[in-house]
Amino acid sequence: MPRLALILCVAVLLSACGGGSAAGSSFEPAKPGVLTVATAFLPAPGFWMGQPATKGFEAEFASALAKKLGLDRVQVVQVPFGQIIQGKLHGADLALSQLTPTEEREHSVDFSTPYLSAPPGVLARIGVDAADTHDLRDLQWVVSRLSTLTPVVMDRIRPTKTPIEVDDRTEALEVLRSGSANALMLDLPVALGLARDEPGLFHVLGQLDGDADIAAALPNGSDNREIVDSTIRALQADGTVDGLFSRWFGTSADDVPLILTEQRR
């Protein structure tokens, strides 16, 4: 009798192994067996690389997400950044496009739990140096109208020269490459990716204190948000995210010097 009870218990335990997803939620993909991911910038150094774009932090993060969610593969669709933040994901399950959650954007999309910390990072041309706010202030900045980091440059750095204003990140990088400007504020992982991609041209001067993050965007009211959140936390806990970060950005964010600026408001 005790043996029978033991066998029953083991059977119960083994059959319970069947459920692979987090307790209390499940994932419903737009296409069966496929995780459809929208992204804006292809290629995006460090995040989406290769042809097709299967390498880079977000590309491999998408694969890890799909695997953890029990899906067979990832399909990538390119969607303009402006449309992603307006909630137009073109049928994708989610968007991975170095997106920083903001209150305004949350009206159009649902953000997942963050998968990367993204304090402001200063990308500068090689040869340009700055150790403190005073030095940063004297640089020639380029800012993008769509970026959430433009107010950081204007309010916390307060440049002495009027920054060059462009429409988006791609144009800002062109200005920086041309030498018309010598500093650009980006999310730190994005800056690290670009510096690693073009080491002869760019380097990361430092990071500013900030608690911004990078998260996935899901269609407003998506039922998949809970399971995506749980899966992201699982990938953070088992070291997948850290592993991808060091593989694609080559350094830990903690190793980038912190430049103290006026207290954040």
């Binding site: 307790a23 809970e226 899966t231």
Partner: peptide, 15 residues
């Protein structure tokens, strides 16, 4: 901890 390692969803935490 269950929440942080992705084993529990927000529903479980609230429950």
């Amino acid at each position: 901890i269950g929440f942080e390692i992705g084993l529990f969803s927000t529903s479980v935490v609230n429950a």
